[in-house]
Design a protein around this nucleic acid. Structure first.
Lengths: 209, 209, 209, 209
DNA sequence: CCGTAATCGAGACGGTACGTCCCGTCTTTCC
DNA sequence: GGAAAGACGGGACGTACCGTCTCGATTACGG
């Protein structure tokens, strides 16, 4: 989010309009969905949000930062369902992620942001903090549930566990994104089944049964 | 590639300069490495290649197509080594891919192209044909070698085999790209080992040993 | 001047700060001298005078009016010396005016104000009342002195006299301004001598001698 | 004028559109007359001339230079009539100049240009070369005619003559401008008669008769 | 000595024009 | 007819000020 913590000092001068913030983020998402990344100009967003361009620039230094904030909230809809088996949970989350990637605003924004982040460390950090890392909770929750069920062994070392979470997250996120956005193929339940089989190893019966 | 088939008619007027093509592609790669995707403009490339803008546009309709051609050849350096075990082969290819993604021209171009491909089916097809799909040979070769060694069961159904190749390819490519370009973390030999363990299942000893 | 008449009603609420008025006018003159007319912005003056923009606008409706008030006082330094001959008096006043026009704040402001006045009758009136007309006293005084000395014939008709004062004033002011500000040439004593010769006619000996 | 001398080298690339130049200058004069100096924006002129803003900036670096060129030609209409007496000639030229200053485009532009020239030596030079100095021909012609008639003594020293021309020019131009643009009073035939009397000395009969 | 009222600073607001950068096309001349 | 050169119309950029507004915090005076 762009908003900092509630200011310690009671803030001098006219306070920033909260309504403007919301209108801008809404306008950004709508424009992304309608016109795509290329059609998203600061001027257009400002006009659509009925806000001056200066107001926009006062809050976000560029299109990139703005889109990070506008898109981040879309990822909050992902939830770990806890369906009783690790396989089912993985397939469910993959499905949710695929649905999210099918939305035009996500589609228009995600890879473009990643691409920009490639050459701007600050932006990459911001993307990670606002969009990517928060989703690692899904992996953590899924792992915890599987451990509770006895499907996975409990953590021994927290550092190793963190690395494992990272690698699993990169694998699920990266693979689904590559499938949908690069290969341009849909994520079917069948594909999700195969993919979770890959993750769970060639003989999942040995593990979960 | 942009080059058309050798013309049937012996071509009227002055023939196109071959030197220009090479100079343009070189200039494109150099500019990508130095200034990144954002700094790559058609005018700049033309100037750098000592070529008129018209010459450039006569060959490539836009920056995107140009970069596809300029970058595609970089991916030819990836080879499947056949080191005697599937694990070793995977780790080797992951390492090669990581090195490729560490080069500034690849880094600047790859995600940007993917992002553009998101909104342009034609471009996506071209990217797949020129850059992505050719690398599936690596998976095919690795699989074949592993099957020859008895590490993997032989193919039963060619359709199933193709789908398996696809999913493995998306997984390796997507995960490594996400790790390097989105998470911004390096690919260490240790990480490659963990990743191949993930791919080979929790008890690889049962399979390969 | 911007200051209104002493209020009839003893004024409710907090009285306006007198210090602010002076600080603003000083800041205006300083900024004019340093940055010129184009560099003079309301925001800048406010900042420099350590005053809020609202405070500034509460007193002066625009840059133009502000500068009129800021610059008017500079013209008070012009005096008619009464040196014993009309020629000497003219040359002295021309010299004073030239010195005034050499000051950067006058230089930056005067023509700019005149230019603005061209499109704003109200402003033109204000400029005349505050800056231009008060200087006609110089012509009047010089004429009176010359008449007392017998260099000039006494007034016959007051209307004719007024017109004569106007035309002499326009001639002296306009010519010196044109020489300094448009032609960009300095006013030397030699030039002043020539100019007063022109005013006094080709054979001044016949008049003053 | 903005146009340089006809290029020695035959000029590479597409030549600049002459039509664009004319359209821009016309649009500038029209806009000046309609909206005044303040309403004259580069964007507006470009739109009105049906030309891209870049085309405009390619030729003139700023509004000031553009207006110099646009306005300069208006001054070409001033001519020295040679009416048989110096007085008549002066009154005629003063009248012409007054008419020129009454035109809205001149009125809007002239003092504004002079004001800008105050802080930009380059611009001042350009104004002098394009607008001011060319009119000195009027003084020269008038003087020559008067000398031919015997109204004025022939030149003795060319340097002195040049200085005399300068001072007379500054006087006529400056006075008329001050009368019209600063004092805001009209130039009547009566005023022109008085002014030429002033120039010709208190006893013109001694000179011209 | 309390409330009303106009002031003060600060700074956000909607808006306009700026001058720059690239785009992709067109119009030259030369080869 | 290709190539170099460079002008063309067009669109977005990010910045600078504009003049207005909304804040909380200060003064004054009149009751």
């Amino acid at each position: 989010m762009s908003a900092a913590q509630p200011p310690v000092t009671p803030a001098k001068g006219r306070p920033r309009s909260v309504a403007a913030d919301l209108a801008i983020l809404d306008a950004t998402r709508e424009t992304l969905a309608e016109l795509g990344w290329g059609g998203l100009t600061m001027g257009h967003v400002a006009t659509r949000a009925k806000v001056a361009k200066t107001t926009l620039y006062r809050r976000w230094p560029s299109k990139n930062e703005l889109v990070v904030d506008a898109v981040a909230s879309l990822f909050d809809e992902l939830v770990m369902p806890d369906l009783g088996s690790l396989r089912a949970d993985i397939e469910a989350v993959v499905g949710q992620f695929a649905d999210l990637l099918a939305r035009p605003e996500t589609q228009a924004a995600l890879l473009a942001l990643f691409a920009e982040g490639t050459r701007d460390r600050q932006l990459r950090r911001r993307i990670r903090e606002a969009i990517v890392d928060p989703q690692k909770r899904l992996v953590r929750q899924g792992r915890a549930a599987a451990q509770a069920r006895g499907e996975l062994a409990p953590d021994t070392d927290p550092v190793t566990a963190a690395e494992e979470i990272d690698i699993i997250f990169d694998t699920i996120a990266g693979t689904v994104e590559h499938r949908v956005l690069v290969s341009g193929e849909p994520i079917t339940p069948e594909w999700a089944r195969r993919f979770s089989s890959l993750l769970l190893g060639p003989f999942p019966s040995l593990v979960s049964g």
